[in-house]
Nucleic acid binder design. Structure first.
Length: 499
RNA sequence: GGCGCCGUACCCAAGUGGUUAAGGGAGCAGUCUGCAAAACUGCGAUGCAGCGGUUCGACCCCGCUCGGCGCCUCCA
């Protein structure tokens, strides 16, 4: 039974979807005015994994993730560049797909934009005015927080407490300092839509209420986003949505913790900011591998805890992942010996159960990964005793299948341009497959060797080995090592290599 | 001022009121190997920031202290 920590109640609760076998979830996406950073990546990844796991658990998932494409920051950016807001949002939506794609984040089933839901937004605002929960003032419309009993339920705040701490200048036209804008009149040169209150644009919070209701109905299962959205964004969404419908809005509220740098929240003012593309560009590994390293790193910590980002942490993820792909390589190499086949199913079954148990416990990916590590270790042992080709295939498939929940282990190769067959005696190199396309330039291109060069060296070394010329063989090993290439000799006398 | 979170070995990181406090990375030793790598085996917190309290018993519950952080304003 899956249980999820619900911000609304402050505890883990058994998860029951409104409709059997279907989960409807809404996640607040990004405001598209800049490149996404590693924190956006974490959030997107967390909900990507939740979605994957729900699907693995036989739910059909209706997953809606919005783009906020009307906003002050977008307008500002457009003015700075002297281009239209549409140009800005189009550019960054494209960038979003690129960056998230590199991380293996699947697209949501529906990715609505605020600008495409003006009718629904205006309708919702009107409804709130009619119900006496909102009031227009000279072209703006505000939500009146005092009229909604239960305001503060999600963030566990009292209106009075908020008032005490408010240090923002309060718009005198508001009836309560915490009243927030549902609709803003637009200034010349700003994007605007006609409305009963004059031409304007929606406030930030209302779009999510409108879009989630439109695509998922007035009550749905899961609503998610980063911790920082709890207040005011999600609090306001609840007020608007429940205020308008008098129904429950989202039933489970899920919030991910922050990515930090040196124990501090990333922020532009602190200058400790890493965009996703920056990380990929700085990486010396092929893109697919870098994506997987990032996933492994980000999923190594429970989604609600803060986690610190550093080069070192990525390096550690790489090393850990290497262990898996080393095993996968060996599983592919044939050596028919079915000695330990019997034990494999038990190992797999144990892992499946433990993996599910971990994920069912509020998506505990750290433990889930630990279980995969255990299976890696167990399979390594069995492999040492001997596994049939069929059993090896089954083992590899199991890693792929469980790993798919986390978006791991889907690559064919890992830091190994595999399939290089060096035929002993002939010393001829055949390349049976190629590396995934490397789209970013390596950190130190001057020391990069081409595959052909590497293969030539390996062939030469093999020759030397055959002639018992170990001095030369070691020389070649050393030389390749200086380029970051590690050679592993296999029992059959051939070699594999990795970076 | 209000609300909340965190402090587990060299590093990352799970976890539980009561047999051995997961797992990974790094390290060391051994097996294997021409050498190496990988794999395997072994070693590694008598202790979970500190101090009190509750309890037959706490790392896990409560209180305080110290240290770090987040939200209360746009923010994943």
């Amino acid at each position: 039974m899956l249980s999820i920590y619900n911000t609304l109640t402050g505890r883990k609760e058994p998860f029951r979807s409104l409709q059997p076998k279907t989960v409807r979830m809404y996640v607040c996406g990004v405001t598209v005015y800049d490149y996404c950073h590693i924190g956006h990546a974490r959030s997107a990844l967390v909900f990507d994994v939740i979605r994957r796991y729900l699907e693995y658990s036989d739910y059909q998932v209706e997953f809606v993730k919005n783009f906020t494409d009307v906003d002050d920051k977008i307008i500002k950016r457009a003015h700075e560049r002297g281009v239209s807001c549409d140009a800005i949002t189009a550019e960054y939506i494209e960038a979003y797909y690129q960056d998230m794609g590199r991380l293996g984040i699947r697209r949501a089933t529906n990715e609505p934009k605020a600008t495409e839901h003006m009718a629904e937004i205006i309708g919702l605002v009107s409804r709130l005015i009619q119900k006496g929960l909102a009031y227009p003032v000279a072209g703006d419309v505000y939500f009146q927080v005092e009229k909604y009993q239960g305001y503060g339920r999600l963030s566990k705040r009292k209106l009075e407490d908020l008032q005490a701490g408010a240090r923002v200048e309060v718009d005198a036209r508001k009836r309560h300092p915490m009243d927030f804008a549902l609709w803003k009149s637009s200034k010349p040169g700003e994007p605007s839509w006609d409305s009963p209150w004059g031409s304007g644009r929606p406030g930030w919070h209302i779009e999510c209420s409108a879009m989630s209701m439109t695509h998922l109905g007035e009550t749905f299962d899961i609503h998610g986003g980063g911790m920082d959205l709890i207040f005011p964004h999600h609090e306001n969404e609840i007020a608007q949505s429940c205020g308008a419908t008098d129904k429950e809005f989202a039933r489970y509220w899920v919030h991910n913790g922050f990515v930090q740098i040196n124990q501090e929240k990333m922020s532009k003012s602190l200058g400790n900011f890493f965009t996703i593309r920056e990380i990929f560009e700085k990486s010396k590994w092929p893109e697919a591998e870098t994506g997987e390293m990032l996933r492994y790193f980000l999923l190594g910590t429970h989604y609600r805890s803060p986690l610190d980002f550093s080069d070192k942490s990525i390096e550690e993820a790489k090393n850990a992942l290497n262990g898996f792909y080393d095993l996968f390589k060996r599983l592919k190499e044939s050596e028919e010996r079915a000695t330990a086949d019997e034990g494999l199913m038990a190992v797999i079954e144990r892992c499946r159960v433990a993996f599910r148990e971990a994920m069912n416990d509020d998506f505990n990916t750290s433990v889930a990964i630990a279980e995969l590590q255990r299976m890696k270790s167990d399979v390594n042992k069995l492999l040492g005793q001997g596994l049939s080709t069929e059993a090896r295939k089954i083992a590899r498939e199991e890693f792929r299948s469980l790993g798919n929940n986390l978006g791991l282990f889907q690559l064919e190769k890992w830091q190994f341009i595999g399939g290089i067959v060096v035929t002993p005696g002939v010393a001829r190199v055949t390349i049976t497959s190629f590396a995934p396309t490397v789209t970013v330039s390596p950190v130190s291109p001057e020391i990069e060797l081409s595959e052909v060069q590497i293969e030539q060296q390996i062939a030469e070394r093999l020759d030397a080995k055959k002639k018992k010329n170990f001095a030369q063989a070691d020389e070649i090993r050393k030389s390749l090592a200086s380029h970051g290439i590690v050679i592993e000799d296999k029992p059959d006398g051939t070699s594999r290599w990795k970076r």
